[in-house]
Simulated assay, not measured.
Amino acid sequence: MLTLTENASTIVKTLAAQAPGSDDTGLRISSTNEEHTAFSVGVADAPEPMDLVVESEGARVFLEPGAAVALDDKVLDATLDDRGSVSFAIGLAE
């Protein structure tokens, strides 16, 4: 299952808290090609019916089925630059 670094958990919680919506708000990751090698990321009010929900330190990540399979053995990391822009990176789990 996808795991989150401490930085990713903190940033996902912050993004969810800033978005108008319910307590179910989280980050949704979906694959954008048939090979499941490219992904889109966005804040979502709730998971879609078929999404896998990953929770880490209060952060919620919703994975569409193709992304869930592709990211099963991966780690999500996140950084914040000087201008406040968020960058996500996916790495191999150790």
Rank of each mutant, 00 (worst) to 15 (best):
L71R: 00
G84N: 04
A68G: 10
S30L: 10
M50P: 03
A46F: 10
S31P: 07
S40Q: 11
F62K: 02
F39N: 05
L63K: 12
L52G: 00
R83F: 14
P49H: 00
V69P: 04
R28C: 06
F39D: 10
G42K: 00
E48A: 13
A70L: 11
E48R: 11
R60K: 15
E34V: 08
P65A: 03
S56T: 12
E35H: 03
I29W: 07
V43L: 05
V86W: 06
L27S: 01
N33C: 11
G84S: 04
L27H: 00
L80M: 14
D24A: 13
P65M: 07
V41T: 02
F88K: 00
G42T: 06
A46M: 08
S30D: 07
V41F: 08
D24T: 10
G66T: 05
A46T: 13
K74E: 15
G58P: 04
G58A: 08
S31C: 05
V54N: 03
V43H: 00
T79W: 01
E55A: 09
P47E: 09
V86S: 00
A70H: 02
V41C: 04
V75A: 08
G84W: 13
P49K: 04
A68P: 12
D82M: 07
A38W: 03
D82R: 14
D51Q: 10
A46W: 04
L63N: 08
E48H: 06
A78R: 01
V61Y: 03
D73K: 15
L80V: 11
E57V: 11
V69H: 03
L80I: 08
V54E: 05
L63I: 02
M50L: 12
V41W: 07
T32C: 06
L80A: 02
D73I: 05
V69N: 09
S31H: 05
V53S: 07
S30T: 11
D23S: 14
D51R: 06
P49W: 00
E35A: 13
P65C: 04
A89I: 12
